[in-house]
Nucleic acid binder design. Structure first.
Lengths: 237, 237
DNA sequence: GCATATTTGTCCGTATGTATA
DNA sequence: CTATACATACGGACAAATATG
């Protein structure tokens, strides 16, 4: 069906005692989460138990626990008696992700509970994105963009909302990894991010929300259309 | 420190094959979730692995998996090398829960994506709540109230939002179980629920949102104050 | 403060059922 | 139909931390 995981993993067990008191399963989940976020394990990749278990030097039980954590985060899907795969989102999923973003991000920006910290972070993300664009690091532009929106969400002043947005944006990252050509998708939004952050700096939350809402509508329209086309090509529809 | 789980559980393993294809861990989680929701395992209760494992006739591994599921839902807390406990929310948690509800419920009501199904459900919940009140079943009034707000959230038209709201409201239920006297808390909101649903029926989403926002502000103010007092008394501050 | 008993954390090997090749 | 790989659950072993006397 699709590529098996190929890369080798460094042995975790040796480093375990250095990393404080997180469970082995969560360490493994962290490694895999990173690999998925960076696109080294793109959507559709099958994660074979034995191969990864041996590569990471952990037991099947522990590995399966890590799989469960990531499945709960919607990064992996579990196909009965076939194993786990990096998730491939449908076009409908993308539509829903933007629906959720409109609800949460717009509400957070319109009536923010926390402003200073999140706004400072948002500013940094905008600057980071612009710098990455100048350097041609388009994947980093995407990362900065995601962090930017995470910062907007955190203006809601709720750790639960933060977590929720984090999960939503991690899913969105899966979409980006199916798309080729990150530049064409991320570049247009650099200036729009800046516009939002400047309106927030000016204290005009209502205008910031409207700008953001238009932003999300446009991004959704562009992404869903292009994404459906890519899925079609790859025959995963 | 606090009460251990006392009640006996019926054996699950025997019924497993009857209940289709859910894992034992999820069955166990379901039983515990129900016990917590009903208040038989109130906040602060310690869930000893061996005792519950024997009572439910499942292995420690399976039970721990169930604990993991419920911990992820924030119904249990895990204290390292001490075990798992039914969570006791802080007053700050309650404030945050209402903050989240204002964001999600108000957005869903103001600009609904799905109307018909959720609205019908909301109407039913209002009627159920009123009937339960007439019968003096105050815990059921609380349940109907929670379902009502779940229905409001589902107007956002997103399974992710639905899931999020479900988790938020399950947490809120933990608060209600610390409070005594469910009547005094739930009764005043019966008419306000009806007001919201009637405004929605009339298609006046903006007015419904405003009514809901005031509702949530009032409920939060009342609950947080009373909750902090109860925590103080019980010395769980 | 100390020694002991209990409980949890982690991992393993195994057994059984099931779906796929 | 058989062989393979996986899902699921169990019981046990040992280390580590905590609770108890």
């Amino acid at each position: 069906m699709s590529a098996e995981v190929a890369g080798s993993f460094s042995d975790l067990a040796n480093d375990r005692h250095l990393l404080g008191r997180t469970s082995t399963a969560e360490l493994v989940a962290g490694v895999l989460r990173g690999r998925i976020a960076e696109g080294q394990l793109p959507p559709g990749t099958r994660l074979a138990e034995e191969a990864i278990g041996q590569a990471l030097a952990v037991s099947r039980n522990t590995l399966r626990e890590a799989f469960r954590l990531l499945t709960h985060e919607r990064l992996l899907v579990h196909e009965l008696n076939r194993g786990v795969f990096v998730r491939t989102l449908t076009a409908e999923d993308v539509t829903e992700l933007y629906r959720v973003r409109r609800v949460v991000e717009c509400a957070a920006v319109r009536r923010p509970v926390a402003v200073d910290g999140p706004l400072a972070r948002a500013r940094r993300c905008v600057a980071d994105g612009e710098q990455a664009a100048r350097d041609g690091r388009w994947v980093d532009v995407g990362t900065a963009n995601i962090r930017f929106h995470q910062a907007l969400g955190s203006m809601a002043g709720s750790s639960r909302v933060d977590e929720f947005m984090h999960a939503i944006l991690a899913e969105l990252r899966l979409v980006f990894h199916v798309m080729k050509n990150p530049r064409s998708f991320h570049e247009p939004y650099l200036t729009r991010n800046r516009e939002v952050v400047e309106l927030l700096d000016a204290g005009d939350f209502a205008a910031a929300e409207e700008s953001l809402a238009r932003y999300l509508d446009d991004a959704e329209a562009q992404l869903v259309e292009a994404y459906a086309r890519v899925l079609e090509q790859d025959g995963r529809g």
